[in-house]
Design a binder for these strands. Structure first.
Lengths: 225, 225
DNA sequence: TCAAAAGTGTTAGATTTACACCCATGA
DNA sequence: TCATGGGTGTAAATCTAACACTTTTGA
């Protein structure tokens, strides 16, 4: 059946997902207790094995769908992790992906059924194997990404206030920024549109709601690399 | 023997190396004709299969050593490539690494024995499978890296002139930079040390030779992230 | 003596940072 | 009426980019 490469060893390949959410002005990630031996009961990222008939991206998307019921989640590869002993059971190489979702899109019932929970990205417990490493690398990549690309919208509802956008940015880069300077920068981004709508849930005065215009963004020549 | 994960499929895992060199003011990469079916004879990166008793990094380092006879090559992971049909033979997932070497360190006899050659990074032919994709991604990563980290020294001899350093920088980022501005920036980097030595092979007047001081670099608090 | 590469400062413009007060509203 | 978060402009400092001529020396 196998015609080529007969003499080479195969390995188990998994994907592990670092799923980011933003809630209560905190960056959070979704983790659970490992349901499998070895390591059963340890904190762990959600993952799954790669099948022979699916690409790595497909495996990650499928895994994300299994867990969240959501399609077309924003997702980027973090890298491959392949220490020999990273899994105490047997040799497993894992490709990590980070994903961004809007916490509100994730049915809380489904979340509980899978036994995963949102923990603050700054307070992640010690996890199984090299999962903490995966998380740091993912955070690092996301931090670099957010400085040049509009990924915030993947974590926010379709309508959001500038304060929300700023808090998210601060949570991701890990430092506070000046309100006026931040808003000045946003004004220059034509693809962040002010709507007529007002959010009154977070303040008495009410804050203008903004939305991300993907079309305008895609047409912006600044972003044609 | 295998106690866990029995029900999951395994895949062949390979590493592919994008080996950069700098010669004649040109950024080059090392490629050869594929020696294996399927795809025998097509242009290809140099790669190898990952063994069960070695990490991905070890597999890449071993592959680099096999080809070049060099140890401790600077090397960074590019990412995992895993389309289902990327290899027409059977399912193979590959982890790409880029590596930087000083062309002069590579014995030309050994190079010929392996049937690989240096081609300009801007003139890479169509290659086997997704290897061109790997090269673009590697170039992109390296370009980002060189803007904040001193990786040039991996591609240059221990002593080099500022003009060489500038030409290399230009080749990597793909655009020319102003000589005076470039040298001003270099002056601010304490870890690039001027020596008393003069290179007279490239000009009549002679150019001062510089060296990279790793110790100074490692102690520079700017680079503690 | 001249061609070829090395070496060297200044200025204008752009970008970034720091900073403080008034507004609207519901409780 | 007051506490809370929303909203706004200016000036200094820093960084970046543009620019041209002199030096040395081997051929």
């Amino acid at each position: 059946m196998t015609m080529f490469y007969q003499e080479f060893q195969k390995v188990l390949l998994s994907v592990d997902c670092i799923i980011f959410g933003f809630d209560n002005n905190k960056l959070k990630i979704l983790i659970g207790r490992r349901q499998m031996d070895p390591g059963r009961g340890e904190w762990s990222l959600y993952g799954g094995f790669v099948r022979n008939d699916e690409s790595l991206d497909d495996a990650a998307a499928r895994t994300l769908y299994e867990l969240t019921g959501l399609h077309k989640i924003y997702m980027r590869q973090v890298g491959a992790f392949g220490s020999v002993d990273r899994d105490p059971g047997e040799r497993v190489v894992s490709v990590a992906y980070y994903a961004l979702i809007n916490v509100k899109d994730y049915d809380d019932r489904l979340r509980q059924e899978h036994g995963v929970e949102w923990v603050e990205a700054d307070k992640v417990p010690a996890m199984f194997s090299d999962h903490n490493e995966m998380v740091s690398k993912a955070r690092q990549l996301m931090k670099e990404k957010i400085k040049t690309r509009p990924i915030s919208f993947q974590l926010l509802p379709p309508l959001f206030t500038l304060t929300q956008l700023q808090r998210l940015y601060e949570a991701v880069v890990g430092e506070e920024v000046d309100k006026r300077n931040f808003r000045k920068r946003i004004k220059d981004m034509d693809y962040i549109e002010k709507t007529e709508l007002i959010d009154k849930t977070h303040s008495k005065r009410g804050a203008a709601l903004y939305r991300f215009n993907k079309k305008t963004y895609d047409e912006d020549p600044t972003f044609k690399l």
